[in-house]
């Protein structure tokens, strides 16, 4: 079996996807009125920041952005003593009546997004929640779909898909490999 990681998207590919998604968000929402971005820890934060930069540049106005740690909303958190490091949640604006674009790197089972939506609703009552992801690898376990997708990447359950980003891994690439 081929165990070497396969690069399925390079730096330029990621950039092009994000640019397209930025335009799609603005097109679908008819501009950026009432729009806000919320990145899901940790990969989603950097993607949301990059989208914030693009959208703000296109519209000449800064789009609000927040950070969400969904660990405490996960449905498996109290079932194991192994805990992901807990990050701070920071949503520096009122969510009520906002159209919130949740941003994450990979959409897989949908459980993270479920947790994120529950968390958001505890912060206020958004008018609408949309979802932007860089990779949709399938295998949903909940009725959740993304509004904006960088790339659909059919994968096997035993494969691991990782989105490496300059900000945290030193380079931009999407990699697929055999899981351990």
């Amino acid at each position: 079996m081929n165990n070497r990681p396969k690069i399925v998207m390079d730096s330029e590919g990621i950039e092009r996807c994000l640019t397209r998604i930025a335009y799609e968000i603005l097109e679908k929402n008819k501009g950026m009125d009432n729009l806000a971005l919320v990145g899901i820890r940790t990969g989603g934060i950097y993607l949301a920041l990059r989208l914030q930069k693009r959208i703000s540049a296109i519209e000449n106005k800064k789009i609000p952005m927040g950070i969400l740690d969904v660990t405490l909303y996960r449905d498996d958190v109290a079932k194991t003593s192994k805990k992901a490091p807990l990050g701070k949640t920071d949503i520096p604006f009122d969510l009520t009546d906002k159209k919130v674009i949740l941003v994450d790197d990979v959409l897989f089972t949908g459980r993270t997004i479920r947790a994120a939506m529950d968390a958001l609703i505890d912060f206020g009552r958004p008018k609408m929640i949309q979802l932007a992801v860089l990779i949709d690898r399938g295998h949903r376990e909940l009725p959740i779909r993304a509004d904006y997708v960088g790339k659909n990447l059919p994968s096997s359950l035993w494969e691991a898909v990782s989105v490496n980003l300059l900000e945290k891994n030193g380079k931009d690439e999407v990699v697929i490999e055999e899981g351990s």
Binding site: D69, L72, Y73, V77, K83, G87, T89, D118, D122, G124
Partner: peptide, 24 residues
């Protein structure tokens, strides 16, 4: 201590509650 620092923010929310230990 680090975990507690992340928890500080919850007490500043309007809904000062997370569902983490639901059922426990």
């Amino acid at each position: 201590l680090e975990t507690a620092e992340s928890f500080l923010e919850i007490s500043t929310r309007e809904i000062k509650k997370v569902p983490t230990l639901r059922g426990k």
